[in-house]
């Protein structure tokens, strides 16, 4: 580490910060871009189709991977339409409002085990532990994410869009509560809320076992948070055209779309951190930096795939069904989970 930073004439801290920034911002972006390919090819395989396999670089098809580049180029070259009656400022702002919270979400999540080198301790998360924000940060950022949808919906000045935006806001309010309760139960049993401490507390037994109910609730809510299929009311293409995205085209659409996939990556990382032991490897006490990063990546990618997998399995809920589920099923379930763990802690003293 010291030699590397000396080569670049940087202090180790600065060097490590740059590395972390690269990983935390470029990592989810790359995975998100790849996920668009995974989604299209994966859905094709699930539905006995073939999927996009025609895009080629110099005649090499590379199992359809150039499609990502082709889509990006296409999005850049398309005409950028802004509806005449739209609120111009907000219409331009909305993709950014969707994108920034999505990218920020990874900031506190540790993507590997902290290691020591040359007398320094290097933490594998953008914000070092003990920043006082801990897991509250992704929740706060996640709460801001709905504004991208809302602003996009409202500024389009389109009835479908506004319907989509209203659905998104109502959905968010009804899910956020049960999600927070599920997370609070984890804070309570771990006695900490910093992700590093949470992972430390999952030594030996991952949270998914004692918190299985909470995991189910959290997982379900994550689908709603990321606007994924069983709950993608904001888009709902069979009901309200494309919901909040109806008026968007070209790069603005691509940005919103990309941020949705980044959300998916962040949601997977959250699930892994909270319930599946973060960078922990089964039966290995101290995996070290490389193995821990690989383990975290593998788990995150697995959950990204589960998101895709569920999307192509489960049909969309009806809107009132979601409301009923959010308030009458998920909230009581997470309350039960919370009270159960509180009771257990009380019995143990």
């Amino acid at each position: 580490m010291d030699t590397l930073s000396a080569l670049l004439h940087l202090s180790p801290e600065t060097f490590w910060m740059i590395v972390k920034i690269l990983v935390v911002f470029a990592g989810p972006l790359t995975i998100a871009a790849l996920l668009t390919w995974v989604e299209r090819r994966g859905s094709a395989m699930i539905q006995d189709r073939i999927g996009p396999n025609r895009a080629a670089i110099f005649g090499f098809r590379l199992i359809g991977l150039p499609q990502i580049a082709a889509d990006g180029i296409k999005a850049f070259l398309k005409e950028d339409l802004v509806p005449a009656e739209a609120n111009k400022v907000l219409f331009w702002l909305a993709p950014l409002l969707a994108f920034i919270p999505a990218v920020l979400g990874m900031a506190v999540i540790p993507f590997g085990q902290s290691f020591e080198s040359g007398g320094h301790t290097y933490h594998m998360s953008l914000l070092d532990p003990g920043n006082g924000m801990g897991m509250l940060f992704p929740m706060a950022i996640g709460a801001m994410a709905v504004y991208g949808v809302l602003v996009a919906a409202w500024s389009s000045n389109n009835k479908w869009s506004i319907l989509g935006g209203m659905r998104a806001s109502a959905q968010m309010v009804s899910d956020e509560l049960s999600m927070s309760l599920a997370v609070i139960a984890i804070f309570m049993t771990a006695g900490a809320y910093d992700p590093h401490d949470l992972i430390q507390a999952q030594y030996g037994l991952w949270n998914v076992v004692p918190h299985f109910l909470g995991f189910l609730v959290f997982f379900t809510c994550m689908f709603a948070e990321t606007n994924r299929l069983p709950f993608d009311f904001a888009e709902g293409e069979s009901e309200i055209v494309a919901g909040f995205l109806t008026e968007y085209g070209s790069m603005k659409f691509a940005l919103i779309y990309l941020s949705e996939y980044i959300h998916l990556v962040v949601a997977s990382a959250l699930i892994v951190t909270l319930y599946f032991g973060g960078w922990r490897v089964p039966f290995v006490a101290n995996p070290g930096p490389w193995l821990s990063v690989a383990s975290f990546l593998a788990k995150t990618l697995f959950f990204c795939w589960v998101f895709v997998w569920v999307r192509w399995t489960v049909p969309r809920f009806r809107y009132d069904q979601l409301m009923k589920m959010g308030w009458k099923v998920l909230l009581p379930l997470s309350l039960i989970n919370f009270l159960f763990h509180a009771f257990l802690m009380f019995r143990r003293g």
Partner: peptide, 9 residues
């Protein structure tokens, strides 16, 4: 930071 996060949430 706790108050800040709660303010946002």
């Amino acid at each position: 930071p706790v108050a800040a996060a709660l303010q946002m949430v």
